[in-house]
């Protein structure tokens, strides 16, 4: 059927919208993020700074604690031969204690960084 043969559609009255002006709706920041706008990027920069601060402070702690061990052995030579129970101190610290310490700090980091993200989602999602 060609368009010309189509039966004429019923006439429709066209009127203005009943709303006098578009209602002002706050645009959620989450939309800014998913639309990748400049505003969204500024919000993410704040999150990045917080995450970086968290990461660097954990690394600094690790550098001080682990990096301090050889210095300790060099400054106080007797710490190299002191025994804790049946084992010498260097073996206890570097062979055993270090591993649970690493796991605990990793768990702490994951919780803290998830908290940062949750707070961010909270602020941004609420708009």
């Amino acid at each position: 059927m060609s368009p010309a043969q189509r039966p004429p559609s019923e006439r429709v009255r066209v009127t203005a919208s009943r709303r006098s002006a578009p209602r002002h709706t706050a645009r959620p920041v989450a939309d800014e993020l998913s639309d990748q706008t400049v505003l969204g990027e500024i919000y993410v920069r704040g999150l990045m700074r917080a995450q970086l601060r968290l990461a660097l402070s954990l690394l600094l702690l690790a550098v001080l604690l682990l990096g301090g061990v050889p210095v300790l052995f060099a400054m106080l030579p007797q710490t190299r031969t002191v025994t804790l129970g049946p084992l010498p101190l260097p073996w206890v610290t570097l062979g055993l204690v270090v591993y649970p310490a690493i796991v605990i700090s990793a768990r702490y980091y994951v919780r803290a960084s998830e908290r940062l993200e949750a707070a961010f989602v909270d602020v941004v999602g609420r708009g």
Binding site: A30, L33, S34, Q36, V38, G40, E41, V44, L47, M48, Q51, E117, F120, V121, V124, G125
Partner: peptide, 13 residues
């Protein structure tokens, strides 16, 4: 800027 936002934005958003 867009790439870095993507790297750091939580997936839920």
């Amino acid at each position: 800027n867009r790439t870095l936002s993507r790297l750091h934005t939580p997936e839920s958003l």
